[in-house]
Design a binder for these strands. Structure first.
Length: 901
RNA sequence: GGGCGACUAGCUCAGUUGGUUAGAGCGCUCCCCUCACACGGGAGAGGUCAAAGGUUCAAGUCCUUUGUCGCCCACCA
């Protein structure tokens, strides 16, 4: 029987086939009525207009690894996909696109514009979902959700109304961050802060009815046009005589009061502050306290407005220049100093944000935050790694009300209607016919939409059908874990916890696992728009998605950032190639199995599926016992690591098992057995080889789904087997653990390595067989070597290996020893570089000497002996003895070498 | 102004609860196209774990200070 397997590993040929298969067969469709504990992850919904970037790739790789692992471990899994309508981002994209066609979106009107965005969404919105399918994510595609779909919009309205009725949503006039480019209010989180070198301008304000003046300092002189007061500290003697008087606002001529207020910092500037309630948060508060008028001197797009008099129509920064020039002309600009201060920047478009008083909708956060803080405090929700807990607490404990209204057209329109007659607001789930207060039909819906993150906050339960008690909601909520980057801890994670607890009475997820941010070699965040990123799809094309997934998993250690370098994916691709070739080794030899009388059907038995070693009841050769012990340890390692979201550790575990243990040692060790004349042994060897390989595929599957699916289907399978994704994930098997076999095999590995090292030192032809000697004082060790003699001869390319217990002489050859365990010798000296050997010995002796001294010192210390656990003391004593013996051997060898041996 | 994180081999990074010669990948040196694999095999070199102090029988691991870099939060005009 021959197996059809291509000689070369070409992921490009394999991956699309399985990606299609998984989607078409709907293999990962969740069934809430199926058995097993629930495991559910809802995707952090990517922007519908976006495409997959490296950050998604990492996020989705982790999610899919967990999902596939849990599915294989008997869980009832749901990985729910979906996208976010991404208000500002999407609107910006379409506005720009229309502008490119010479169309002003405002002239289209709201309705038409919304149509255009929906059209754009239908045309381009599928990209990221298509890419997710392409990279093999095991989602239930039948449950795909979109934040702006009619179903989810209904949930949003419902939540809004409830919060409004509970008094947690209110409409108020307040100072907000205004982006003059996006022309909308922003939340505090959407406003970034950037340290900039600016200036502090000192301006004289004349005092009414006198020749005096008062000097104020400001970083934004153009706002003076909206000044309505000056504040000084009540205890400031410099200004004591001026409090209660009025100043004349330059350029404007308005009379403004000078007021005492202890918020003023006497040390800063001149100790006198100009107050612009409409354009500064502090001033806004001061304005409220002192009942000052608010004068908004700007327009929505960041120009000076009617209230700015002669400056009306100018851009705000142009106006700044002109104001300063005019002040200078009038001799009122007293001083200019350099001043570094933080400037608010729009998260989306990087425009300098204008603080501005405006009427907006807000969500009261304190009452929502309290139970959300408690849920993390009491451990109901675990944040991993734990250092993010503190970050979360800090933000949550200082949380401020959330400005949720946006002056955009793309999003969930606020379900509030203003009455033209009574001026009151009607908030309702469905459009009302008339005002709830006066019955007037002259009502109009509020033009604003909700912050995108408002609907995202509901995602874990809105996607599962809440508020209906659906089967999905009952089965999969709370979800298991949220996998995300720390960037959106506040934007999204914190808000989901608050909303989840508030509306469902339950936490939205048990764990929050924060993964690193992917950066490039220069340490910058990978970003396509900045040209600092890579296109993961393109990289997948070149190396394979499996290699990409494995690379990311292997690099994703909790904590810091992850720097993307291409050499890591090269090594992961090489690993995939190694697996492919190990498979080929099996497949091309299946013929021999058949010829030897073993049947492939027999190999596909359920016992083999479970990875049970053939002849497990004591009939295991050393290498088999060792391999199964290693396999069990690797399985344990992978399971435990994934349990704690240590992807890096899990990947490493499976990598080393497969490459080092399985390929480099086991396969090489048993090769003759496979082809050997002894039918029973050959059959056993094949069965074990098959079982371990098949188990390894299952162990690898969550990391490299395509490759493992491909190879698994090439193995003999039960009829009707659909996918390795439904096979059992390998668990640690205590009965396979075999410390004795591990110790013995490691010993033999050391012997082989020492012999090979000598061959290299003697520059022997790799094929040239030589005679060697082995010596150990332990009879058990000599017996072990004796039992494994043929293998040792083959692996070290020896003609013979004598076994003894006497010290081996250096003269006339080369000797190696591994600690006090054994000595090996090759009796040749032609190729020997005596000087190099002497250097090596001296170095090793020096190292041992240091080590011995350190250990002696510790053992001579009585406090150590009394305080340290006995096992540590005993262990130290034993190693010290070994080191001393080894040093002595090396010294003897060294002196023999010096004597011209 | 607060807070957090990083600093370990030439490079990119691991190192769970402190415990006996600190690991990986890439790169480097030497040997090999040996019948699964040169995207490979074999052997090896390379680190006083940023610095200083401290706690401890014992510190890469805990504490303090310093330095360098990065990030987050913050309404000093």
């Amino acid at each position: 029987m021959t197996r059809e397997i291509a000689k070369a590993y070409e992921p490009q040929k394999i991956e699309p086939r399985w990606a299609d298969y998984w989607v078409k067969e709907e293999l990962f469709r969740a069934d809430p009525s199926a058995p097993g504990p629930a495991f559910c992850i809802v995707i952090p919904p990517p922007n519908v207009t976006g495409s997959l970037h490296i950050g998604h790739m990492l996020d989705h790789t982790e999610i899919d690894i967990l999902t596939r692992w849990r599915r294989m471990s008997g869980y009832n899994t749901l990985y729910l996909p979906g996208t976010d309508h991404a208000g500002i981002s999407t609107q910006r994209v379409v506005v720009r696109q229309l502008a490119d066609q010479g169309i002003d979106y405002r002239k289209l009107g709201r309705e038409e514009f919304e149509k255009r965005v929906w059209k754009w969404k239908e045309e381009s919105g599928g990209t990221i979902i298509r890419q997710m399918k392409q990279i093999g994510e095991s989602c239930d595609w039948s449950r795909e959700r979109f934040t702006l779909s009619p179903e989810l919009s209904r949930v949003v309205r419902d939540v809004f109304v409830r919060l409004y009725e509970e008094g947690l949503i209110y409409r108020a006039h307040y100072l907000v961050n205004w982006c003059p480019n996006c022309m909308t209010a922003l939340s505090d989180l959407e406003t970034l802060h950037e340290e900039r070198q600016g200036h502090l301008w000192y301006i004289r304000y004349p005092i009414l009815g006198s020749n005096e003046h008062i000097v104020v300092a400001t970083t934004r002189p153009e706002t003076m046009l909206g000044d309505t007061a000056i504040l000084v500290h009540p205890a400031d003697e410099r200004y004591a005589g001026l409090v209660g008087k009025k100043a004349i606002l330059p350029l404007v001529g308005r009379e403004i009061p000078i007021i005492a207020d202890d918020v003023v910092d006497r040390e800063f500037g001149t100790g006198a502050v100009k107050v612009t309630p409409a354009h500064d948060p502090n001033d806004f508060e001061a304005g409220r306290r002192h009942d000052l008028p608010e004068i908004d001197v700007m327009t929505d797009d960041g120009r000076m407005g009617a209230a700015a008099g002669g400056y009306a129509g100018m851009d705000r920064f142009e106006a700044r220049k002109r104001v300063l020039e005019d002040l200078k002309k009038q001799g009122l600009l007293e001083n200019i100093t350099n001043h570094v201060h933080a400037v608010g920047i729009c998260e989306r478009c990087k425009t300098v944000v204008e603080p501005r008083a405006s009427t907006q909708w807000f969500c009261r956060m304190k009452p929502l935050a309290e139970p959300a803080i408690a849920a993390v405090e009491n451990g109901e929700i675990q944040i991993i790694p734990a250092n993010w807990r503190e970050v979360y607490f800090h933000w949550m404990r200082n949380i401020r009300d959330w400005c949720i209204s946006r002056q955009l057209w793309w999003g969930h329109r606020i379900p509030a209607w203003h009455c033209a007659d009574c001026g009151k607001i009607t908030v309702a789930r469905e459009a009302p016919a008339k005002c709830a207060h006066c019955g007037s039909a002259k009502i109009e819906q509020d033009p604003d939409v909700l912050d995108t993150w408002f609907s995202s906050a509901l995602w874990p339960f809105s996607t599962l059908g809440w508020p209906a008690e659906t089967a999905d909601f009952k089965r999969y909520y709370p979800t298991s874990v949220l996998i995300t980057a720390h960037e959106i801890l506040f934007f999204w994670v914190a808000r989901m916890i608050m909303m989840g607890i508030h509306f469902t009475g339950k936490i939205p997820f048990h764990d929050v696992s924060i993964h690193p941010l992917v950066r490039n070699a220069e340490g910058q965040k990978m970003s396509k728009s900045k040209g600092t990123g890579i296109d993961p799809i393109d990289v997948n094309q070149r190396y394979g998605t499996d290699a990409m997934r494995f690379t990311l998993a292997a690099m994703a250690a909790p904590g810091g950032d992850l720097i993307w370098t291409e050499d890591r994916i090269v090594s992961a691709r090489n690993f995939a190639n190694k697996i492919w070739n190990a498979a080929r080794f099996l497949f091309v030899n299946f013929e021999k199995v058949a010829a030897g009388g073993a049947s492939l059907d027999e190999l596909a038995t359920p016992e083999m599926r479970a990875g049970a070693p053939y002849g497990a009841n004591g009939d295991l050769a050393l290498a088999d016992a060792w391999l199964f012990s290693r396999l069990s340890a690797a399985s344990k390692g992978v399971n435990e690591a994934l349990e704690e979201y240590r992807f890096q550790q899990a990947a490493q575990s499976v990598y080393h098992f497969f490459w080092d243990d399985f390929c480099d040692w086991y396969i090489e060790w048993i090769k003759p057995d496979l082809a050997g004349p002894d039918g029973t042994r050959a059959k056993t060897a094949w069965k074990n080889l098959f079982a371990v390989f098949e188990t390894a595929l299952r162990l690898l599957h969550p990391f490299m789904p395509f490759l493992t699916e491909e190879l698994w289907h090439q193995l003999p399978q039960r009829a009707g087997a659909r996918s390795i994704a439904f096979e059992r994930f390998p668990a640690a098997k205590a009965e396979w653990g075999n410390a004795e076999a591990e110790e013995q095999f490691a010993y033999l590995q050391d012997v082989v390595t020492a012999l090979r090292d000598m061959r290299a030192g003697l520059k022997l032809d790799p094929k040239k067989k030589v005679a060697a000697q082995f010596s150990s004082e332990g009879k058990a060790w000599r017996d072990l070597v004796q039992r494994n003699l043929p293998t040792l001869l083959r692996l070290a390319v020896l003609s013979e290996l004598s076994i003894g217990s006497e010290r081996l002489p250096t003269a006339g050859g080369l000797v190696r020893s591994v600690l006090a365990k054994f000595e090996v010798r090759i009796a040749l000296s032609e190729g020997l570089d005596i000087a190099a050997e002497a250097r090596k010995l001296r170095k090793e002796i020096e190292r041992l000497e240091k080590d011995i001294a350190a250990k002696r010192q510790r053992l001579d210390d009585d406090t150590f002996r009394t305080k340290a656990p006995e096992s540590i003391v005993k262990g130290l004593e034993a190693t010290l003895a070994e080191r001393v013996l080894e040093r002595e051997k090396l010294m003897t060898r060294f002196s023999q070498l010096e004597q011209g041996g």
